[in-house]
Nucleic acid binder design. Structure first.
Lengths: 229, 229
DNA sequence: AAAAATAGACCGACGGTCGGTCAAAAATAA
DNA sequence: TTATTTTTGACCGACCGTCGGTCTATTTTT
């Protein structure tokens, strides 16, 4: 086969792009190293020149994703015009947006992610997001406490609880969304879950009732009703 | 090899016992079918006579564990002498006990469970425990609402949130426990996490402050200080 | 005689290794 | 400067052991 030489970082990113896409659309277990190297157009040995193992490749994919997420959220923190609860809402909105960028892609994604075998990617995302995002969330909560708009005894811990909970709920939500898609479940089930989660997180951080909004209700409804397949 | 024939259920349980033990001490991915059949003392074909796939074997292991858990919890529900919050506390105490029956075994267990590759077993446990235990928890919450000792808008949903959250936090806790074991972290970090979780769940179900107790504090401390390795 | 249980040889796919190729860059000699 | 040598590391693909799973023959039970 023809030998094509590239810059280290360029090749590495090529591999990460392909791997990320395949992990997402097929799941981690269901994606073979051979599939990845075929799609990138490199040999077996080459990929092991960049990543020591398949798991290390997964780590790198997750790491890159979370870093992107963190970079998107960071600016909200420093915006002094926003109240703590506003920052909270915006943070979740951005995380949501990053996950659901394109509808068609997302539906396939959900179907794959929901299979039990593919927990690894999801779990890794949650764990790493706790490492990266929890401190940000904790800081927002502390600001809120100083502003007297929030009240919370253990802001650092609660930040991790919120991420852990929403990580879990994401998995649960995908199940519901798939069931709604297939007509086996009603939209309202999803709306109630969403509302319930909002009220619960409000209590966790000691916010006023109905001040937290994880997702725009009309937008969510539109997502389901606009479907045409 | 000598041919040993057993009753269907007996053999099935033999396989489940060995599989459960290996999944726990090595992780799911790291346990091979060959290891299991060697330890049970059967041939390859035999195990596939009982379970269609390795995943189905995992499902069966988890199912059996959760059923045991449910059976242990069920009596609490019907005990009319207990208040809702008492039932809540006892439920968590029993779940905790089942997980931490033997100290030595548990420490090995924690070390294994905490490795990222072994999420599958844990995640399956969480998912299935929500199916089985959440309705029980929800009923307790509803009783508490009627008793006026709890207040909660979405009892069914909150029940799943609590289990989802404590499932995820279990994972996080194991990390801390291992770090304490290795002297890299202080016991107090764990105590704070535990307290934080108690206060948060109290808020979720609208209980009085300091009424919820997920684990006995002195017992937890004893667990760590009694260690001699 | 039929059905259920057991055995173990066998299979293709998988993740990963290894010895080695080759071109560009760096160091050295002219 | 230019020519020559050395070093680096990106790249290749045949190969290996292990894995989950299949298949068929055989034995036991009903």
């Amino acid at each position: 086969m023809a030998r094509i030489v590239k810059k280290h970082e360029a090749r590495k990113n090529e591999i990460l792009d392909v791997a990320q896409n395949l992990f997402y659309t097929q799941g981690f277990d269901q994606t073979s190293i051979n599939q990845i190297i075929d799609q990138v157009g490199i040999a077996k040995g080459t990929i092991y020149h960049y990543f020591k193992s398949k798991y290390e490749l997964l780590d790198a994919v997750v790491e890159r994703l979370i870093k992107q997420m963190k970079d998107a959220i960071q600016p909200i923190l420093t915006n002094e015009e926003l109240s703590a609860i506003d920052k909270f809402n915006m943070t979740f909105k951005i995380i949501g947006q990053m996950k659901f960028e394109r509808k068609e892609f997302m539906l396939e994604l959900l179907r794959v992610m929901n299979r039990d075998e593919n927990v690894i990617l999801h779990q890794k995302m949650v764990t790493r997001s706790i490492d990266y995002i929890a401190p940000i969330l904790a800081q927002i909560i502390k600001e809120g406490i100083q502003e007297n708009s929030l009240n919370c005894e253990y802001p650092d811990e609660v930040a991790t609880y919120i991420l852990g909970l929403s990580g879990y709920m994401n998995r649960y939500f995908t199940k519901i969304i798939i069931e709604i898609q297939e007509g086996r479940e009603d939209i309202e089930v999803y709306m109630i879950q969403l509302k319930g989660l909002e009220r619960v997180i409000e209590r966790m951080i000691g916010a006023e009732r109905e001040t937290l909004s994880l997702a725009d209700e009309t937008l969510v409804r539109k997502f389901f009703t606009d479907q045409e397949d």
